[in-house]
């Protein structure tokens, strides 16, 4: 992983990846649903981060293994005679084409990439709000090429995952699979690349419990 700075964590995440802090929180299961969703979508498109999540799961396994045992109140139940049939983890149709939604996102959008029902929010920008329990708000955005990306708030860490097209933030180009992690203080003016629209998943607000009480401001432009 020569392209990664493994010691960094959000908000100083390595460019275009969530960073160790968010990946370990995803592995630990302590993120909000919308952040879980964003990390799952990124990991679907990034093997480096998938490997990192799995190594943090191994750390979770290590914690479990080294816990002092707590006495159980009940005896071991007799294992069921018949195993419940489990869904075999077969190969899902990978979202291969630019703009296609990774599987975890399709579930939240409720439809395949081809059938998305975009809603205009002004200026040619379209969006779909995804139903995820708070804290954290997740939406898909479709921004025409050459247009400035709407600000979606700086009250907590803000994640933007590109699914189609690309955007520039002045210094970097973000294409499919790239994630921008923006800290509250970051001043950025992302612009969708000329040509095809930029489709991205944008998640705002605080991912972790201890920062979940930050106030949420009105966002009249996005009608939220």
């Amino acid at each position: 992983m020569t392209d990664r700075d493994d010691t960094a964590g959000a908000p100083h995440a390595p460019a275009k990846h969530p960073g160790a802090a968010l990946l370990s929180a995803y592995a630990a299961g302590t993120l909000s649903e919308s952040f879980d969703l964003t990390i799952a979508a990124h990991v679907s498109l990034c093997d480096a981060c998938r490997a990192e999540v799995m190594s943090f799961e191994a750390l979770g396994g290590g914690l479990l293994e080294t816990m002092p045992p707590a006495p159980l109140a009940r005896a071991m139940p007799e294992p069921a005679a018949d195993r419940r049939p489990q869904a075999t983890p077969g190969m899902q149709e990978a979202a291969a084409r630019d703009g296609d939604l990774p599987a975890p996102l399709e579930r939240y959008a409720g439809t395949s990439s081809a059938r998305l029902r975009w809603r205009a929010v002004g200026g040619g920008v379209m969006q779909i709000i995804l139903k995820a329990e708070g804290p954290g708000r997740a939406r898909l955005l479709r921004i025409p090429g050459g247009m400035a990306m709407p600000h979606h708030g700086h009250r907590g860490i803000e994640l933007t995952l590109v699914l189609g097209g690309a955007f520039h933030d002045g210094t970097e180009r973000f294409a499919r699979g790239d994630m921008q992690v923006a800290a509250p203080a970051l001043e950025h003016m992302p612009v969708a690349e000329e040509g095809q629209p930029c489709i991205c998943l944008a998640v705002t607000d605080a991912p972790l419990r201890f920062t979940s009480l930050l106030p949420r401001l009105a966002q009249p432009f996005l009608r939220i």
């Binding site: 010691t7 960094a8 964590g9 959000a10 960073g19 160790a20 802090a21 968010l22 370990s24 929180a25 630990a28 299961g29 302590t30 750390l59 979770g60 914690l63 972790l208 419990r209 201890f210």
Partner: peptide
Amino acid sequence: RAYFGEQSHREIAV
């Protein structure tokens, strides 16, 4: 503390 959701994961990252 990080795995039990009691604090930031920034620390274990480093």
